[in-house]
């Protein structure tokens, strides 16, 4: 059993399941977005922000943002542990990614509810 303190859930299985569940959410969200854009060829600001005033849409979007954060974290953590052998480099990269993802997430929440 290899323990590792910086991975997402401390369990390979949860990471693996999360990565797959988040991928499905992101896929559905992407399909929805592309479909929506195709159905609204002359999209204007009012329609667009109207879409995001709907609570269901906000929840859906937030779910997608969280999924991106989790998915990216698990993926980049894997990349870091595969390719970055010096500890300082790997740990630095991991801290940077965590901070970036956290900032993007909070920023996303602010965009969704703050407007």
């Amino acid at each position: 059993m290899v323990n590792n303190i910086t991975n997402f859930s401390r369990s390979g299985l949860s990471d693996w399941v999360l990565q797959r569940v988040s991928a499905v959410i992101l896929a559905v969200y992407s399909v929805f977005m592309v479909g929506y854009l195709l159905l609204h060829p002359n999209l204007d600001y009012t329609t667009w922000s109207g879409l995001f005033e709907n609570t269901a849409m906000r929840i859906f979007s937030l779910m997608a943002f969280i999924s991106i954060a989790a998915h990216a974290w698990i993926g980049l953590w894997t990349v870091a542990t595969d390719y970055m052998k010096p500890t300082a480099l790997r740990f630095g990269f991991q801290v940077f990614v965590i901070l970036a993802l956290f900032i993007f997430l909070v920023w996303g929440v602010q965009v969704l509810w703050g407007a």
Binding site: M1, R10, S11, D15
Partner: peptide, 12 residues
């Protein structure tokens, strides 16, 4: 199974 459930053993 409990010995295999870490992020590396199987899931790499």
């Amino acid at each position: 199974l409990s010995e295999l459930d870490d992020p590396f053993a199987v899931f790499r």
